[in-house]
Amino acid sequence: MRWIWIDRFVEFTPGRRAVAVKNVSLAEDHLHDHWGPFPIMPCSLMIEGMAQTAGVLVGQARDFKEKVILAKVSLAEFNDIVVPGDQITYRAEIDNITPEAAVTTGTMLRNGKPLGHVNLIFSHIDQNLAGAKFPKDNFVFTSQFERLVAPFLEGGDG
């Protein structure tokens, strides 16, 4: 199993903005534990969904050469709950990107209506100030993530 919390991108403008959707299904195991009689999508997994949407956007901006790691959740606000049958839309924009890090702002929709905001900071960990070394291979962006975004980079329709 791979920890992927977005189903597909519906918009991808390299270096600027990405929009992804996630359809929430009662077939997903985690909903049965959260919480049995009243299944709702955990907020932590929606933060992860935004991190993946924004993380791929940030990674692609450097041609997937940097290891992009979520370093800080600057803001996470939810105004509603999400239940099976709902569709979540993650809209992420790059606010600032430097050799060491990137800042993204994000809004979320539930079935097209405002759901909340998640702002994140990612680190390009090979450029860290402490000079720590990491494995050479890019363990962050697997082919699964690259496949999700490939249609937009090849001029496809997504």
Binding site: A71, K72, S74, N96, E100, A101, V103, I121, S123, L129
Partner: peptide, 22 residues
């Protein structure tokens, strides 16, 4: 923490409209 220093630099750049070299 260490990542906060970067966050602070980014926010100061925006708040004061300045560029802060690494």
């Amino acid at each position: 923490e260490s990542i906060d220093f970067l966050d602070i630099v980014f926010r100061l750049e925006k708040a004061f409209n300045i560029k802060i070299p690494r």
